[in-house]
Design a binder for these strands. Structure first.
Lengths: 230, 230
DNA sequence: ATTACTAGCGATCGAGTAG
DNA sequence: TCTACTCGATCGCTAGTAA
């Protein structure tokens, strides 16, 4: 059984996020339709995962959610809300400005390029375009787009982590010295999301081309990124 | 893995409830971090449970949610919304009016009374008080109160289903010919919810006493019911 | 009363592979 | 390619029971 579901079942018996409930493993077992032993193990695991806090007494246990537990449930809730309140369409595009990367991107693209070619079928330009999201797009949920994964691999004793690649279109206003002044140019690319470490408000983009050069981008250039799923 | 979670993962890749997505079992497997075989089985099971519809082609499958699937996710969503938007407090009490039962209640209480005594520690009056919920309380969520269950049992060749009992207080304005005119009288009781069949807008209440007599209730009398959990 | 350990077994998973 | 079957391995459940 998934932790989220169990957490949800607990939450449902609470009045609010900072509430606490008293329940025995036997009662909880009946609610979930499992044995008392299993219910006990579930609660123990949740505690171990730091999703709930417990105080165990002679006639049951007092349970409250931890910050992490609340956060997980809240993500759950927000995603469902987006789904049902139909707010997803508005989030298919995000906007931001080009910022300087720390040069790390180039190194990693070099290391990953064989895998990128294998999975995405193109040889990437050895560098990433870093985009700082405009404030109202921070927290953009990338989970709802079907990604391509590049799995963990080892090379020369180093381990390179799993990376999520989401197909996207980079959109910029045409450069001044061209016919298409002011016209929007769309360029296919991939958003790169490392499984381990990434900033909340910066996304990295890779492409077959040097996007800065091809699209005439500089530090601070406004860009829009469109995601279409598959 | 729980069906609900899988349904949620699918929904998260959709733009809205009537959207459909194209995804292969391999892609879905990577999203859930399970094998392709398992992902395939999950989808097959969801289809079998009538939670999704599939169109299987040569390069993947088109998936959309069924009405039942949407309903399950929506319940999920509404419960989480109540939890996070703190609307639960307002629902600790519901209101309604006394209505005539069809006499069935008395029969069942007679059959269940041994079990009731065993589990709830009182001999119930042989009859139920039926309350029709006021419109704005229809859909009241009883799941968040910790109930006492009376398990399935057999007696004289008949099977009597599982029943959920939730402790409550019945509140009515004092009868006219007493000292406590207009004063609110609280009476301990249990709400009875059969696992199998019950109306959305009618709840049945049992008590040690004949509540109609004790509280002077008639068809149409306004009552309030307070639930406290345990 | 509780919670939760251990043992055994039944359910579920994933590798191999067919269609 | 895809989906999905079989089947052996492994995981997770429940019964019994200790604390």
């Amino acid at each position: 059984m998934n932790s989220k579901i169990i957490l949800y079942e607990i939450a449902q018996r609470m009045k609010s996020v900072d509430d606490r409930i008293s329940i025995s493993s036997m009662q909880f077992a009946e609610l979930l339709d499992v044995s008392q032993q299993t219910a006990s193990r579930y609660l123990k695991n949740l505690e171990h995962e730091n999703l709930i806090k417990r105080k165990i007494g002679a006639r049951g246990q007092e349970i409250e959610l931890t910050g992490i537990g609340i956060k997980i449930l809240n993500e759950f809730y927000l995603n469902l809300r987006d789904f049902f309140e139909n707010k997803k369409d508005k989030k298919e595009i995000f906007e931001g400005r080009v910022i300087k990367g720390i040069g790390e991107g180039a190194y990693y693209v070099k290391e990953y390029c064989g895998k990128i070619n294998e999975k995405l079928n193109f040889m990437p330009f050895e560098g990433t375009l870093n985009i700082k999201l405009n404030e109202n797009f921070v927290g953009f949920n990338f989970d709802r787009f079907v990604p391509v994964f590049i799995d963990v691999f080892k090379k020369g004793g180093r381990t390179f982590g799993k990376v999520k690649c989401i197909p996207a279109k980079l959109m910029v206003k045409g450069k001044k010295n061209e016919k298409e002044i002011g016209k929007e140019i769309k360029e296919n690319c991939f958003i790169i999301i490392p499984e381990r470490t990434h900033h909340e408000d910066v996304v990295e983009i890779i492409s077959e081309f040097n996007l800065r050069e091809k699209l005439g981008l500089f530090e601070g250039s406004r860009v829009r990124v469109e995601l279409n799923g598959f």
